[in-house]
């Protein structure tokens, strides 16, 4: 009875902070929220704070204004290389992987029963099986033992082995390919489930209304209905697009030849983990964070235009 009465009293209005209902809600959600805020939001606030200081983990941080940011943008050529590479990779792995995942999910939707489950599993498996992407270094290994080199030499396309992970002209495309390969994560599952959940009535109605081919069906019916899934997939692909750095280090080593696959993440780990210039590293982290938030904003704007 207590809750029923409260519902009536506050209907349509913002709930007062001091009401009992609010306190019960806060009590129930606080175990999660406190931990979430401590380990997800607080670090970002600390990073923003530290980015305006000189801090080496041993002495207390000293405030030095925007020096870190000025150095980052004007004195640090390597950062600009990293920025360029990160943007290239994010553009290829993010939207590229996203579109490939969407197309694959769309094709899988045509399958039925067991084939469908099997296909979903085959595409999802790389992203859950840990660091299996390491195997690509064996397949593309730089001597003639490598499978890629072996095949290419057998058919006579090349005469001596290509050093795939040391030659700057191959490193970037390979890293992008492998990053896309292991990006079929929960966003992809979400697409498969989303396609399945669309009621066939929509297609039948569209057919009556004169939609003639599959592409029109996709653009005017399927994608607009899928918009919530598309947004979720996009959000999940942002994090995979900006964390390619780890894969690059595992494949090409650090530092990579001529810094061909040097990303902001590598730069951040270099200053944070090896040089202990924490203030500077935090400034890099803040730049990366702003890029992520900016991308999120852009994606929301773009997805609002689907199906128009």
């Amino acid at each position: 009875m207590f809750f029923k009465r409260k519902e009536k009293v506050y209907k349509g209005r913002k709930i007062p902070f001091w009401s009992k209902e609010n306190w019960i809600s806060i009590g129930m959600s606080s175990p999660y929220l406190i931990i979430f805020l401590t380990f997800n939001i607080l670090p970002i606030i600390i990073a923003i704070g530290l980015s305006f200081t000189y801090f080496n983990m041993l002495q207390a941080p000293t405030f030095n204004g925007i020096t870190n940011y000025l150095n980052l943008l004007t004195n640090d050529d390597l950062f600009l290389t990293g920025l360029k590479n990160t943007i290239i990779m994010a553009v290829c792995v993010g939207p590229g992987g996203y579109i490939v995942a969407l197309i694959v999910a769309w094709l899988i939707n045509e399958m039925k029963g067991f084939v469908r489950t099997l296909m979903t599993f085959l595409f999802y498996a790389p992203s859950i099986s840990g660091n299996v992407y390491f195997i690509w270094t064996v397949l593309f290994s730089s001597d003639s033992m490598g499978y890629a080199n072996g095949i290419l030499m057998n058919i006579g396309a090349i005469t001596e082995p290509i050093r795939f992970f040391q030659n700057p002209s191959y490193m970037m495309p390979l890293c992008i390919f492998i990053a896309i390969w292991c990006s079929f994560g929960s966003g992809f599952l979400n697409f498969v489930a989303g396609f399945k959940g669309i009621d066939r009535q929509y297609y039948e109605a569209a057919m009556v209304d004169g939609v003639t081919n599959r592409w029109q069906e996709l653009w005017y019916i399927t994608l607009p209905i899928m918009r919530p899934q598309l947004l979720f997939g996009a959000v999940m692909s942002i994090s995979s697009a900006f964390s390619v750095g780890g894969i690059c280090t595992a494949l090409c080593g650090f530092p990579s030849t001529q810094y061909a696959v040097h990303t902001i993440m590598n730069h951040l780990e270099d200053f944070g983990g090896a040089r202990y210039e924490m203030g500077y590293a935090c400034a890099i982290a803040v730049v990366l964070f702003l890029m992520i938030i900016g991308t999120n904003f852009l994606i929301r704007k773009m997805l609002a235009k689907v199906g128009e």
């Binding site: 380990f39 959000v235 942002i238 990366l288």
Partner: peptide, 21 residues
């Protein structure tokens, strides 16, 4: 909304402050 935004955080960004915490 904050939780939604946190879905796309990359682990490395928060590495140093997490260590301090």
């Amino acid at each position: 909304k904050t939780v939604q935004t946190a879905l796309m955080f990359v682990g490395g960004v928060t590495g140093i402050p997490s260590f301090i915490i």
